[in-house]
Amino acid sequence: MSHTAAAPDPARAPLAGLKVLELGQLIAGPFAGKTLGDFGAQVLKVEPPAQDGAAGGDPLRQWRMLHEGTSVWWQVQSRNKQSVALDLRTEAGRAAVRRLIDEADVLIENFKPGTLEKWGMGYDALAATNPGLIMLRISGYGQDGPYRDLPGFAVVAEAMGGLRHLMGEPGRPPVRAGVSLGDTLAALHGVIGVLLALQARARTGRGQVVDVALYEAVFNCMESLLPEYSAFGAVRQPAGSALPGIAPSNAYRCADGQVVIGGNGDSIYKRLMAAIGRDDLGQDPGLAHNAGRAARVDEIDAAITCWTVQRPVDAVVAALQAVSVPVGRIYTVADIAADPHYRARGMIERIVTAQGLSLEVPGVVPKLSDTPGGLFRPAPALGEHDARAWGDPAA
Results as ranks from 00 to 15, higher is better:
26 L>N: 05
27 I>E: 09
31 F>A: 13
32 A>W: 06
34 K>I: 14
34 K>E: 15
34 K>P: 11
35 T>M: 15
40 G>D: 09
41 A>E: 06
41 A>S: 12
43 V>W: 03
45 K>W: 09
47 E>F: 15
49 P>T: 03
49 P>S: 03
49 P>R: 01
49 P>I: 03
49 P>V: 05
52 D>T: 11
54 A>K: 12
55 A>G: 13
56 G>R: 05
56 G>I: 11
58 D>R: 01
58 D>E: 02
58 D>Q: 03
59 P>K: 07
60 L>A: 14
60 L>Y: 12
62 Q>P: 06
63 W>P: 02
63 W>E: 08
64 R>V: 14
65 M>H: 15
66 L>D: 10
68 E>K: 14
68 E>N: 14
68 E>P: 10
69 G>V: 14
69 G>E: 10
69 G>T: 12
71 S>W: 06
73 W>A: 13
77 Q>K: 09
78 S>K: 06
79 R>S: 10
81 K>H: 12
82 Q>P: 08
82 Q>F: 15
83 S>D: 06
86 L>E: 01
86 L>F: 03
87 D>E: 08
88 L>H: 01
89 R>T: 03
90 T>C: 05
90 T>L: 05
90 T>R: 03
94 R>C: 00
95 A>G: 05
95 A>L: 04
96 A>C: 08
100 L>G: 01
102 D>A: 06
103 E>Y: 01
104 A>I: 00
104 A>R: 00
106 V>W: 02
106 V>A: 01
107 L>E: 03
108 I>S: 02
108 I>D: 01
108 I>R: 00
114 G>Q: 10
114 G>V: 14
116 L>R: 00
117 E>F: 11
117 E>A: 15
117 E>C: 13
118 K>W: 09
119 W>V: 05
120 G>D: 06
120 G>R: 04
121 M>L: 14
122 G>N: 00
124 D>W: 05
127 A>N: 01
131 P>W: 11
132 G>L: 06
132 G>K: 01
133 L>Y: 05
138 I>L: 07
140 G>H: 04
143 Q>F: 13
145 G>I: 07
145 G>V: 07
146 P>S: 04
149 D>W: 10
152 G>Q: 02
152 G>T: 05
152 G>R: 02
154 A>P: 04
